[in-house]
């Protein structure tokens, strides 16, 4: 991933005023149109073989997440085992994309996953509030990277963003980016539920991408409003337009509140119809979820056997 500002947008982050001018110069979002578009795409009917494909794709895109104060090494290990073999009764079920944990659990997750192709994602930068001094946040990131995290999920400073201090947010993302050494990919969480408006989500998306995010992510899952089809659609439009302007592809990760197969398939339709099929891989699109996996597995069993499955046939997390 390039960490320098792409050339067509060179100079927009040279000062607070140029950055503000750029972000406020982005077209305003039509909220009614956006929500109607997201709702319309949600009505697509995906059945039989297409549904089976969508379910497997969705499973392979999950960042299987546990972000609780009560997380134990045992819970992280069982989550890792589930990521490696989601359905013990059916070896054809794909592995999930990653396991997402707090930094102090990253080493446990790394050890449990071994050299399998399941990434360790770690939240960092004083997740979920992001209210800490910059050097504390950077130390948080360093500890996660040192523990073997392949991906860092950082939260932006919403306070600074809402106060209009865009350059501070930009510089902070750049500083975190610099700590993501080697092949570590950076996901930038906006906490869309706290940004109040769709215009702000669009600005945050561009700000994050300009600062070198590998992924832009809706939310932490810790506030009332998490990922919605509308805000994810908006971010998908942003990554599409960003690639068109700069040639750099950025991934999208909706997180929180996606619990059913039906929801997940709607998101996949959004991806295909907005950003395009290039994003339909776990390298460029992820679901931040935990209970979603069980529903996908139950649907998968239903397609395989013709019988409705139940919670007795998937693991309790």
């Amino acid at each position: 991933m390039s960490t320098s500002t792409p050339s067509p947008l060179a100079g927009v982050a040279s000062s607070d005023s140029t950055l503000r001018r750029f972000l406020h110069g982005l077209p305003g979002v039509d909220p009614v149109g956006l929500e109607a578009r997201a709702a319309a795409l949600g009505t697509r009917s995906i059945k039989t073989t297409a549904k089976a494909h969508a379910i497997d794709l969705a499973i392979s895109m999950i960042d299987l997440t546990t972000l609780e104060g009560a997380d134990t090494p045992g819970k992280v290990r069982s989550l890792a085992a589930k990521a490696l073999r989601p359905d013990p009764s059916d070896r054809s079920a794909p592995m999930t994309a990653a396991v997402c944990v707090y930094p102090d659990m990253a080493a446990t997750a790394r050890a449990a996953l071994g050299d399998a192709d399941v990434k360790v994602a770690s939240v960092a930068t004083a997740f979920p509030a992001g209210r800490a001094a910059l050097d504390v946040k950077l130390a948080d990131v360093r500890s996660a990277v040192a523990a073997g995290a392949d991906e860092i999920d950082m939260v932006i400073d919403r306070g600074a963003f809402l106060a209009g201090h865009y350059l501070d947010v930009y510089e902070e993302i750049r500083a975190v980016r610099a700590e993501c050494t080697g092949h570590v990919r950076l996901k930038v969480i906006f906490e869309t539920g706290e940004l109040s408006t769709y215009d702000n989500i669009r600005r945050a998306s561009w700000l994050g991408m300009l600062a070198g995010a590998d992924f832009i992510k809706t939310s932490t899952g810790k506030v009332g409003t998490n990922a919605t089809p509308a805000n994810t659609l908006l971010m998908l439009e942003a990554v599409r337009d960003f690639r068109a302007q700069t040639g750099t592809q950025v991934g999208v990760k909706p997180a929180g509140g996606i619990r059913t197969t039906k929801d997940a398939v709607k998101y996949l339709v959004l991806v295909n119809e907005t950003a395009g099929p290039d994003w339909l891989t776990s390298h460029w699109f992820r679901f931040g979820a935990s209970s979603l996996l069980n529903d996908l597995l139950m649907q998968r069993q239903k397609l395989r056997t013709g019988r409705y499955s139940g919670p007795d046939y998937v693991t309790v997390d």
């Binding site: 019988r307 409705y308 139940g310």
Partner: peptide
């Protein structure tokens, strides 16, 4: 029919 085959009934 689906109720009789349902694994959670």
């Amino acid at each position: 029919a689906p109720l009789a085959a349902h694994q959670d009934v």
